[in-house]
Design a protein around this nucleic acid. Structure first.
Lengths: 232, 232
DNA sequence: TGTACATCAGTGAACGCGCGTTCACTGATGTAC
DNA sequence: TGTACATCAGTGAACGCGCGTTCACTGATGTAC
């Protein structure tokens, strides 16, 4: 059976996890730029070259952390939505709940958030493996708007003619079943949500916004409005 | 007269400028994390220790670049607004013009944008000198909304009671003369504008948004709506 | 079940690199008398 | 106007640091017969 593993295989899984955990800890403490294989190895009581049995390079380790971060924030969003849905929340409440969950995750994991939504790590370019996990939050938001559309419908202004072809293409590519107006607003809202969180996290709200929970909830509610979610 | 300078003083001004220019070039090429005093000195044909006659540390040089970047993007915003105003544009058109100018600046100076609006540089904390220059873009946006308010007025939904005290405080702190509803929406819009630009710049729109000019103009126009700027 | 060989995790030394910062110095520019 | 001294830009060597990656190796685990 494939569930019974030899000592070698079990050890490999455990050590790989330990490396990622330690790397995540360093990431949280110092940020991506300071993440070094040598420091991780040191902390684990290994010699730095031993890590090359598990990750062929520093970049591969970073990629693994990025994928994990995308999955982690994606799960946070999906679970928040599932809870809201279980509580029979209306689309607008689901939307706000997901936004708040994403923000809460970001505040708990600021460096991981910066890793995936902040400025790109110099010299590193994300490989294709990250595309799937990267879209979980977006897909959750799409799901909420789709449910609203199929229910009471959406309240959206008409698209300018110049944007229609692009909105139609985006809809076909990743938001099937939505009206193109909704897709365009949704993509913008997703970026805007990240802007709100980034500003808070990266210090732009220092000396500007003090009651940040209240402020964010209001902004997220307004965003729900811009994607056409009905008030009631 | 203080306008006649000795050779020493003139040289100092020129060399300081040359150091900043070269540093900016390296920043543009490699990003903030890779900016090194040694590399700048090398490129300038100086010995690395000579830079310490001009900047007491690497962080001071970074701070100078940050201040310059804030000023540069601030000037871009202010000039765009002045041009729109000279063309007798209505507030909404001024708003969109400023948003587009900010985006254009960001696309031309991606690493400088990342330096000021991206994830914080590890180990670096911005000193107080940056506060003034940092608020130029925001002040430009405030000015547009204030002009609209004093003209035809703003179209804004009422504030939730929980947010009112914070909105009143923000208004008193940096947006005197605006109704508190406008201040709250404005701060959110400012962060959302940065989110739109960051997503485009940092690659989140890859495989998502293709016709980015059109998309951005639409999103900026929608933002004008959320801050209450009248359509006509 | 036992043995011979293959696989693979981890070691330790080394390579070559670049960095920020300090310090005693030289020589040119500026200043006071 | 000329001279003596003070100021300051730039030099060159050095300190101490950490990094990613390679490579030949040892010894334990796994596998085929």
């Amino acid at each position: 059976m494939s569930t019974v593993r030899g000592a070698r295989e079990r050890a490999r899984i455990e050590v790989t996890a330990a490396i990622k955990d330690e790397a995540r800890r360093m990431l949280a403490a110092e940020g991506a730029a300071k993440l070094s294989l040598r420091a991780v190895a040191r902390e684990l009581g290994m010699v730095s070259s031993a890590l090359y049995r598990y990750f062929p390079s520093r970049d591969e380790l970073l990629t693994a952390l990025i994928v994990d971060a995308y999955d982690s924030i994606g799960v946070a969003a999906e679970e928040a939505d599932a809870r809201a849905l279980a509580a029979a929340a209306l689309p607008r409440a689901r939307w706000v709940a997901v936004c708040e969950a994403v923000r809460a995750w970001a505040l708990e994991h600021p460096h991981e958030y910066a890793l995936i939504y902040g400025s790109p790590v110099p010299g590193y370019s994300a490989p294709v493996d990250t595309v799937g996990p990267a879209s979980r939050v977006g897909n959750t938001l799409i799901g909420i708007v789709r449910a609203a559309y199929e229910g009471r419908g959406l309240a959206l202004p008409p698209l300018p003619a110049a944007l229609r072809p692009e909105a139609v293409r985006m809809t076909a590519d990743f938001a099937q079943g939505l009206p193109p107006e909704a897709t365009a607003s949704l993509v913008a809202a997703w970026a805007q949500l990240a802007g709100l969180i980034s500003f808070e996290l990266f210090g732009q709200f220092n000396r500007v916004v003090e009651d940040r929970d209240t402020f964010f909830t209001h902004a997220a509610t307004q965003l729900a409005h811009t994607v056409g979610l009905p008030t009631t």
